[in-house]
Design a protein around this nucleic acid. Structure first.
Ligand SMILES: [Mn+2]
Ligand SMILES: [Mn+2]
Ligand SMILES: [Mn+2]
Ligand SMILES: [Mn+2]
Lengths: 222, 222
DNA sequence: AAAAATATTTTGACATATCAAAACTAAAAT
DNA sequence: ATTTTAGTTTTGATATGTCAAAATATTTTT
């Protein structure tokens, strides 16, 4: 019954792929799962089959995999631990938001319920982590905000960065340097389809131009 | 090269058995190692052989096992992480000294060098953990205090509890209730060989009688 | 509709970690 | 000096997690 950290990683990867998809009921293709976990596709197929045996996922050969109720709850608990740990490392331990992801990747499997509750309490039952990712509550329920990204939001309007959908340390440091962390006020001043770029004005009247790939990872609210 | 948590647990168990022995060069018998780790003797034999292959231990069939230089250093690092985490959980997270051992048992394998250094710094480079166990420095060097226990210390003399050689939560709670935590002042008022007991007077003029088995686990200085 | 390309599953192998039970060694007792 | 006992090692299995490469299935292109 005690889910291994490998199984926890599979659960988390399936959960996140499901969340990212438009259709929340869609199956996650095995190839996607395998590459998210850094294993060959055959390995993912084998693991998913044993997870079917544990009642954690539903699996359709040649189509993909989806979490069951039980699997979804466990996945949410892993994500809850990951995100609370990240916020803890930033707020209490004074670590950089760019580097906490790797640490949390390990600690999410090692922190007990007792400790995670202490952390939650110490941080004041926070709703989001340092990257703006929502923290599931102890029942696994996640507040669903519908944020726009820098490609879909209105131009020349006051915005606040709310979430970053990319854990790459260099990218996070880049955002920090250009005052684009969650909570900071910005404005999209131009979008150029042919140049594949978006130009942003930060609160400190700093101007940056980034590619659309990166722009799609920055979520904002008005 | 990245030592698994299983190997880390073997290293730690061998290290602690070596430390507890009078002769620090003595071999640790396989039976002792196996029972410390909760595995059958055959399992320990197999694991120890693979650890010989990694240069972590020296092994004499039918005699026992001993750490190499490399093994001793790694073991000290595991212990360093374990003890810093325990102190952190007590001092910063406000957990009870009786319950932190289980959490540390998992976290010792998951905290990064970066994080452990932050913890060390935040705690002010402490020398001992909540149970009085010495914390190895980053080079693996341990300050060796020669404390007496309640069976070998002088009677009717002012003492201070310095260390508890038993992580059992119930025992630790018992000590706490009777004001016998590390740092607290006590006095041995009587030792009765035939009754197998030791009577103690705490700073709050509280009196308790405990068995010699328990008394041998309480270290003090004068 | 057939061929080509892409994705997935299966097969056989391997590494790690474990146990049960048989075989063996060493130490203690008679 | 045997015998008994206690401790240790070996052998044969099992569970988990992984890969390489072959076999299949599905989708796309022609
Ligand atoms: Mn993260
Ligand atoms: Mn995050
Ligand atoms: Mn401990
Ligand atoms: Mn301790």
């Amino acid at each position: 019954m005690a889910t291994s950290s490998t199984v926890e990683n599979y659960l988390k990867a399936i959960y996140q792929a499901q969340s990212a998809a438009e259709d929340k009921q869609a199956l996650v293709p095995m190839g996607h799962l395998a590459s998210a976990l850094g294993v060959v596709p055959g390995t993912a197929t084998t693991m998913v089959k044993t997870m079917v045996g544990s009642g954690l996922v539903a699996y359709e050969p040649y189509s993909g995999v989806r979490l069951t109720e039980a699997g979804e709850h466990l996945a949410a608990m892993v994500l809850r631990r990951h995100r609370l740990v990240e916020l803890f490392l930033v707020q209490i331990m004074g670590m950089s938001w760019a580097e906490v992801h790797e640490d949390a990747e390990q600690l999410e499997h090692a922190v007990s319920d007792r400790l995670i509750d202490r952390i939650d309490q110490l941080l004041g039952r926070p709703a989001v982590d340092p990257h703006g990712d929502p923290i599931p509550d102890p029942e696994g329920i996640v507040a669903q905000h519908l944020h726009k990204n820098l490609l879909t939001c209105p131009v020349d309007t006051d915005l606040v960065v709310t979430r970053v959908l990319n854990q790459d340390a260099d990218f996070l440091r880049f955002l920090e340097q250009h005052e684009l962390k969650p909570g900071q006020a910005i404005k999209v001043i131009a979008r150029d389809a042919s140049a594949d770029s978006v130009s942003i004005l930060s609160s400190g009247n700093h101007q940056v131009t980034i590619g659309t790939r990166a722009a799609s990872k920055l979520l904002v609210e008005i």
